[in-house]
Design a protein around this nucleic acid. Structure first.
Lengths: 225, 225
DNA sequence: AACCACGATCAAGGCCTGATCAAGAGCCGA
DNA sequence: TCGGCTCTTGATCAGGCCTTGATCGTGGTT
């Protein structure tokens, strides 16, 4: 769902949070101190960052200022101090939200969800049209020439995944990751099956597909017109 | 009429304003400083916010920016400074209107009325009709074919949450967030139960729902026609 | 032309999801 | 404080969906 960078020096807390977030389908990376976090951020910019203020090396406030100067990525600060000045410092350097320790992991997870929603990232919720085919992720519905098509959740998920990049060829693994989740282990063959069933529902002639195209040696793609 | 959050550290002024506004039928909550205001805002998002710029802790400008980043709720700033830069700062972070101290309570009340009217909160947004079903968030009531339906607070909250996006498929988590609050933790299954009970009250045939539709693999949605 | 690799197709079993029931916990008004 | 209603949760059940193993067909390669 989203790639989250967790900068937290307390390994225990980090692990708990990581579990929660991964359970929600996020891709979580943990950095034990500020410098590692910065390196990780540079190596692969995440969709959201959770920063502990108190960290060895580079502390959260400085790190926040640094990152904020390069990117508008949502940053949530976590602090043990209840001191208001701490909150202010955090917001001052551009943090998007802040949570005081001790916090319940679920509260922080909720804040993260809210921040992601705000950043519009959890909304690959959009509407795609390819010829007669309409894929509406918001309504979780697909239609063909105005007529709703009855798809199973997996079929819809895979179709929506392909629809995020019409014309782009996805591997089966990419499709599984996008439609089912990173932590899901199914044979890649399964994707074939779903697309086979999907074709029976939306293709006029399954041997001559109009929408779901096979890319031999790679995977599948959605026609882009 | 409307729920108004008043962030003002001067208890005297706050009291006067509160009296005026309540006299007009509004539901007013007062927060003495910025952090309290933020907490209160999160606990229960109001329909309009009046912010004093000068406040201990989190000041009005920062608070405004913070809130604006997550919601389009109308915000009116109040400041003692007559300085133009202050006005600009306020408008810059997304305030909808701006009133200089000292102001007459009547003037501020008038501005509030205007802002509410602009936001269309007068009536429309908080009332939704679909077929025989009417959901009126303003009155906290639902009716079926003109006959009031007796719903529990949760049932109504969930129905109203779904009504904010008719036709849109909500996950159980989203429904909980919207209807109960971000920091409330109930199992997602609970939503099923409420909707089950809700269906018994508003659906003619619960096995063939007309209003509350199940979106397998995702959650629920309200029919949009 | 023959072989090989990959995708298409079929059938079946296990698993997951949502509906439903029952009961304990919590909250509010009397 | 007590009683009643609401909220929440656990358990169960049925149906549909997901997954998989096997097999067939076809395109690509040598």
């Amino acid at each position: 769902m989203a790639r989250i960078l967790l900068a937290e020096d307390d390994a225990g807390q980090a692990f708990v949070l990581q579990s929660y977030l991964e359970h929600e389908g996020h891709d979580v990376r943990v950095a034990g101190d500020g410098l590692l976090a910065l390196a990780e951020y540079r190596r692969s910019p995440p969709d959201l960052i959770v920063l502990d203020v108190m960290m060895p090396g580079l502390d959260g406030v400085d790190l926040c200022r640094l990152i904020r100067s390069e990117s508008p990525v949502p940053i949530i600060m976590v602090t043990a101090k209840t001191d208001e000045s701490d909150v202010l410092a955090g917001l001052d350097v551009g943090a998007d939200d802040y949570v005081a320790k001790p916090y319940s992991p679920r509260l922080l997870v909720a804040r993260i969800r809210a921040a992601l929603r705000r950043s519009g990232l959890d909304s690959h919720l959009r509407r795609y049209e390819i010829g007669e085919l309409v894929v509406d992720a918001e309504r979780f519905e697909a239609a063909l020439g105005g007529t709703p098509v009855d798809l199973t959740p997996r079929e819809f998920g895979i179709l929506a995944a392909l629809a995020t990049g019409p014309g782009r060829a996805f591997t089966r693994r990419e499709i599984l990751d996008l439609a089912v989740g990173f932590d899901h282990y199914a044979l890649e063959r399964t994707v074939d099956m779903h697309l086979f069933n999907l074709r029976r529902k939306i293709e006029h002639d399954a041997t001559q597909p109009r929408y779901v195209l096979t890319v031999r040696g790679r995977g599948y793609k959605l026609a882009d017109e």
